[in-house]
Amino acid sequence: MRRLIGHELRLALRHPADSAAALLFFIIAGTLFPFALGPGPTTLAAIAAGVVWVCALLAALLPLDRLFGADFEDGTLDLLLLSGLPAYGVAFAKTAAHWLTTGLPLLLISAPLAIMLRMPASHLALLFITLLPGTMLLSLIGSLAAAITLGARRAAVLMPLITLPLMIPTLIFGASAVTSPHPAAALYMLAAMLLFALPLAPLAAGAALRAAAE
């Protein structure tokens, strides 16, 4: 499993453009809001948390259709399923690689974007704390959707249509916790959802991978 994650990270390093594209999309999409709404500090501060959250979700979706797609097309998926690792292990390793190459960089770069959107400095810590499970949940649910749509004709369109509705609860709790005076309840909810998705999403994604390989 660790070898597979390492292998995926090495592939991502050879193709830094994929991860960089998600980061650039995140920054550019976030930058559009001040242009559309005007640079008024109170307006921007009010929407900053929501904007960062939504842009992070959309940006993390970008590399997902290649997550299993490339392996499916070049025959690597068969080898992965025959590597002796159970299918859910393969799905979990790929999910972890997606988070490390997309979710984690987005998390780190969210602070400068939030500051640019006039988010009060006191909210930054909470933004980090909520985006951490938030990006993980997106990787888990996103890879599940990527596995389900694998081999489908409009996979790149279908995948976000499955992922984004499932991310709504995470978005509600995550974005509201950043500005809420009592964030604890929402944070517990995020943690609960993460604990729920952590074993179940790779299990389902693994079954979908097996079905796609038939």
């Binding site: 592939l11 050879r14 097309e73 070049d74 025959g75 690597t76 068969d78 399923l81 002796g84 159970p86």
Partner: peptide, 26 residues
Amino acid sequence: DLAEHAARIAWLGHLDAVKPALTAAE
């Protein structure tokens, strides 16, 4: 047990499963 069965098999499909970005030695 599919994982146990997989450990007995070496697979060569009609696709080569070669990653363009990695070297032969990788």
